[in-house]
Design a protein around this nucleic acid. Sequence first.
DNA 1: TATTAATACATTGTATAACAATGTATTAAT
DNA 2: ATTAATACATTGTTATACAATGTATTAATA
Lengths: 108, 108
Amino acid sequence: MKTEFLQNWDTQLKKGILPLFVLKALSKKECYGYELIQELKLSAGLEVTEGTIYPLLIRLMKYNLLTSKWVEQPSGIPRKYYQISDLGKKALKEMKSSIQMTMTKIVK
Amino acid sequence: MKTEFLQNWDTQLKKGILPLFVLKALSKKECYGYELIQELKLSAGLEVTEGTIYPLLIRLMKYNLLTSKWVEQPSGIPRKYYQISDLGKKALKEMKSSIQMTMTKIVK
DNA sequence: TATTAATACATTGTATAACAATGTATTAAT
DNA sequence: ATTAATACATTGTTATACAATGTATTAATA
């Protein structure tokens, strides 16, 4: 079992990392929120709850990094699909290069 | 000038990265708080204020990742020197490997 | 048939931690 | 005499992950 310190640290690190992974996932294919939760678990091992992902998607929309559209389903609840915008692609690029610069400093 | 989104992102990312860099710096040599601020700027390009570093050092002490001692100066204000503990070294190691795993996923 | 689980959206309250602002005190420079 | 740099620290604000809760639909199970 992880110490309290390392658990808190994981949470704080996630606050920085998560938006990047969401943008990255959406740059590969459009997703709806619930789908993203499973996608992030699979692709990055990131376990995220609904109370995290929905507010995050709304925030990314607010900054015009995403677009969205409702899609009715043949059966069940309609899904809100999100797409990365041009601004989102630009932000993702900057975030990647920024974090890679930081990483070289950690190893050094 | 960076967008509001990227500025907030930098701040959030720092919350995850900073403890690692502090432990890393102290694993090289013991430092006092004010010195650490300049050390982090030089070694990692991290700009940190006193309102960030002092509470952080207190937090790391709380989790027994650091030890500290006051050192009187021939002139001026006494300095509180911090040393990394064995537990701190262990945490640093885990943090490094955890973050490097995450990083490979970003590149991938 | 009734109950549970999974899907799919969303909000509210709590906790963590960076940061600006402020405070105290000492010493050096202008 | 005033300002800047050094050196400690605390208070209030803000951003954001997360647990908990809520609504609604459909499938599986007991």
